[in-house]
Every structure is written in C-alpha cells, then in structure tokens.
C-alpha cells in the first residue's frame, strides 16, 4: 500500500506529495498526524503541496493550508500540480534460477527474483524490487526507473553497493561479516537507504 503522503526535498524547499489515488480525508489525516509527531520537522523552509494531478476544492485547499501551518516556522506554502513520473510499481516479475557471476549484468524493467547468489562484480538492475534467495554480494539497483519505494531483499545482504531509485549506498569499509544467514530488507526512508533485518 502506498502512503497517503510522501516527502521530497528540493533545492527550493520541501515537496509534500499528496497521493492522488487516496481519499482527501486520508490525506488530511496523514498530514495532521505528521504535523503532530514532527511539528519541528521543517523549520524555516518553503513547503510545496503537490496535488499530483488532482483537483482540490477551495475548502480542501484551505484545510490543507491550516494543517501545514501547524509545522513550526513554515515560511511559505505553495500548491504544485506535478504529475509524478510513472512510478507505479512494476507488476511483472522475472524469475532467475542461477547464480549471477562477476562480469554478468542483468537488466529488467520488472521485479526480479533470483534463486541463487549475486557474486561480487555482478550487477542486477530492475525497474521494481529485487529479491535474492541467496547471497547478495555484487551491485544491485532496484527501482531503476526512479521508483523510490522499490526494495531489495536478500537472504544474506553483503552488497558491494546498493542503489534504489537515484540513491546509492555502499557497504561500510570496515565490515564485520555475520556468518549466519539472516534475511534483510533495504528500502528508502527520508532519502536514505535503510537496511533492516526481517523478522518472521
């Protein structure tokens, strides 16, 4: 499920994308909740409310402005109407049943599931999610078409580099390699790639 609101920082200020597929009340609630939990989240910035192609009534706009004003020290509030680039999640999935070795590069516009390892020096690029039922040691790029809600899952996540959307993260230089197999998930949160252990 996609979030009702999402944030993006631009050089001009903070853009709040309002999900055009959700009910107005859900968006208002989500925004309200965020202002309560993080009232000092934005200080001294301009806020751009992106209607994402949807048309709001005057009343709805007023309500949104009231909510956003609850953030401390917001300078200006603007309305935008940018259609987001096609970021619908890839629905097709490709299944690959082998190990991807150094020098091999796979590129699919879809989700990719690999039953096998991705070795160092190998590269897998997917439009959607990448799921590795094996050890991920090479370079992977999920959401290569710009989707920031793509995720990467591996039974053992030891990548040379992870890329999701247009964000890159590399493994720390001093890595302690855990011996055990434990599934981990990488995703973008607040513009940074997070990795968390998957609990079952």
């Amino acid at each position: 499920m996609r979030n009702a609101i999402s944030f993006r920082v631009s050089s001009k200020g903070v853009i709040i994308n309002l999900n055009s597929e959700m009910k107005f009340s859900d968006i208002a609630d989500a925004l309200m909740k965020h202002t309560e939990e993080a009232s000092s989240f934005f200080t001294g910035v301009d806020i751009f409310l992106n209607c994402s192609g949807r048309v709001f009534s005057l009343k709805e706009m007023q309500e949104l402005i009231d909510i956003v004003s609850r953030y401390e020290k917001v300078d200006n509030i603007y309305f935008l109407n940018e259609q987001e680039r096609v970021r619908s999640r890839a629905t097709d999935t490709v299944l690959i049943n082998r190990t991807i070795r150094s020098g091999q590069k796979l590129k699919y516009p879809t989700n990719v599931v690999i039953i096998g390892d991705i070795n160092p020096g190998a590269e897998v690029v997917a439009g959607g999610d990448i799921i590795v039922l094996g050890k991920l040691r090479g370079v992977v790029h999920a959401g290569a078409t710009g989707s920031t809600d793509a995720q990467i899952i591996a039974l053992k996540l030891q990548p040379t580099q992870l890329r999701i959307g247009n964000i890159i993260s590399r493994s720390p230089d001093e890595t302690k390699i855990p011996e055990s197999i434990r599934p981990e998930r990488a995703y973008i949160k607040d513009g940074v790639i997070f990795v968390e252990e998957m609990k079952f």
Binding site: P120, V139, T160, Q161, D173
Partner: peptide, 11 residues
C-alpha cells in the same frame, strides 16, 4: 579497485 579497497565506490 579490489586491490585498492575501493570496489564499493564505483558508480
């Protein structure tokens, strides 16, 4: 890159 320990920085 590997001998230099820089393999994880290549874009």
């Amino acid at each position: 890159d590997v001998v230099m320990g820089l393999e994880n920085r290549i874009v």
